[in-house]
């Protein structure tokens, strides 16, 4: 048993328990915090796979920016505590059905792939250098330039939309 495997097992325990904690805590702020823990654990998984760039982006974007906004909204709306009653009675059976289907599909694909010899391995550790970062940037800005630019335009449109929605109209009631 090598040290990577031990780290992996401990991390998966943390990841799964934080995901469960997010689902089952009744306070929205605690849920958000469990989700942050989960995101950081996933970032450490990326580090184990030799992808430090993705790990750091994961922490910056998800754990840093997006979850802070989530917390911000939860606190501003004062929606920390869930009402005790269940307002959507059909939600639970539907969720149970859909997640069962997903689990069955995942297990089927896992075992059907396991029979073939295609084994997913971690990328070579020697790729874990500045050069790989450079190569990634090169690919992103040459082969995938169009999707990249389309994404940025999408984000720009979202930003403009947000500004227009919150803008106070001249002469209208504030």
């Amino acid at each position: 048993m090598n040290s990577d495997l031990i780290v992996f097992l401990v991390l998966s325990l943390v990841a799964i328990s934080s995901a469960l904690g997010m689902l089952f805590s009744r306070n929205a702020v605690y849920s958000a915090l469990f989700l942050v823990l989960n995101f950081i654990t996933v970032a450490v998984f990326y580090l184990l796979l030799g992808a430090p760039f993705i790990a750091m982006s994961q922490i910056t974007v998800y754990a840093g920016a997006i979850m802070v906004l989530f917390l911000f909204v939860i606190m501003l709306l004062g929606a920390e505590n869930l009402a005790p009653g269940n307002s959507l009675p059909w939600q639970k059976p539907l969720a149970g059905l859909l997640s069962t289907i997903l689990a069955v599909e995942a297990i089927y694909i896992l075992f059907s792939r396991a029979r073939s010899d295609a084994v997913i391995t971690a990328p070579d550790a020697s790729l874990n250098t500045m050069e790989s970062l450079r190569e990634m940037a090169m690919t992103l800005f040459s082969d995938y330039l169009l999707p990249f630019e389309v994404t940025s335009i999408l984000l720009l449109v979202a930003m403009v939309g947000a500004i227009i929605l919150t803008r106070r109209e001249k002469g209208g009631q504030s």
Partner: peptide
Amino acid sequence: DLNVGILYLMSIASIAVYGIVL
């Protein structure tokens, strides 16, 4: 000696806000 040192700074700086908010 991280090759993504600056991104590390960025990510820790973005985590740092939690203490104050919480």
